[in-house]
């Protein structure tokens, strides 16, 4: 199987630089890194990819069973690393992808020398003595929103998106063209994301880890950031003066600086 095509892998930046894998979360694709990737590319060999089912990935490779657990996403991460022969790389995962990186890192020690967890949450739904911020009903409401909005997606678009652009003019017709996702696939990813519980995986992280949170983030509130920080031995926590769940878009410079300084400190 051609992993590069399947996961729409692109590698940019310094060929001799340390490898930095940027893994997008639920809701979008590698486009989400567009404001930080150029700056990171000055220093690193930056690896971008889409999980199967997202963005420009090969949708025919999508399998509802595989992508119904975080393990499936972790496997995608490892597949990309194996394909590129990465060792000791830096993994930067956003949102649910942060946890996929934690799983991947435990599964193949040596692939990642460091982890950067951007607005991570190991569990979104409240539990006894744990506040994730959401209830099961809230997640159902999100699924309704997904059903009500086929962002940039329509049946006629599918052939174009899936790489058979015999009618390229179709590509111009829809707005919200970034982050378009097959609604059936988005629903599975949403469930996997918001019903996951990876709290037990945190203690097993064995590499230097940076947790980046936003000062105001509805999806990963500060107490969740503190929980992740406390659960990962020796981790570092940085709180960005930013709003929302996507600091790589709302505060790109600060995000790049947080990553850089964490990696610089590691060199000493």
């Amino acid at each position: 199987m051609d992993i590069r095509r399947r996961n729409n892998v692109s590698v940019i930046g310094r060929e001799d630089g340390p490898a930095l894998v940027l893994a997008h979360g639920f809701g979008c694709d590698q486009n989400l890194w567009r404001l930080v990737a150029p700056a990171l590319a000055e220093e690193f060999r930056v690896v971008l990819f889409d999980y199967v089912g997202a963005g420009g990935s090969d949708l025919s490779a999508w399998d509802p069973e595989r992508y119904s657990t975080l393990d499936g996403y972790a496997e995608d991460v490892l597949d990309v690393c194996r394909e590129l022969g990465l060792r000791d790389a830096v993994f930067v995962g956003h949102s649910v992808s942060a946890m996929a990186g934690v799983v991947a890192s435990a599964r193949e020690p040596g692939r990642f020398g460091r982890l950067v967890l951007l607005t991570p949450s190991p569990r979104y739904i409240d539990d006894d003595g744990y506040r994730g911020g959401f209830s099961k009903e809230d997640i159902d409401e999100l699924l309704e929103s997904l059903d009500a909005n086929y962002l940039g997606w329509s049946g006629v678009m599918a052939p174009v998106i899936m790489g058979a652009p015999d009618r390229p003019e179709l590509g111009e017709e829809l707005t919200n063209a970034f982050c378009r996702t097959d609604p059936d696939i988005a629903r599975v990813f949403a469930r996997t994301t918001f019903l996951s519980d990876s709290r037990d995986d945190l203690a097993g992280v064995a590499v230097p880890t940076l947790v980046v949170e936003c000062a105001e983030d509805v999806i990963a509130p500060r107490e969740v950031g503190a929980y992740v920080h406390a659960a990962i031995p020796g981790s570092r926590l940085v709180t960005l003066d930013a709003t929302g769940h996507c600091p790589q878009l709302s505060a790109p410079e600060a995000t790049v600086e947080a990553i850089r300084s964490f990696l610089r400190d590691g060199e000493r």
């Binding site: 809701g27 979008c28 809230d138 409401e141 929302g244």
Partner: peptide, 15 residues
Amino acid sequence: TIGGKLYHETHFAPL
């Protein structure tokens, strides 16, 4: 709504 907030943060705001 809370589900709407989730959608806003994961889709609307990034877009």
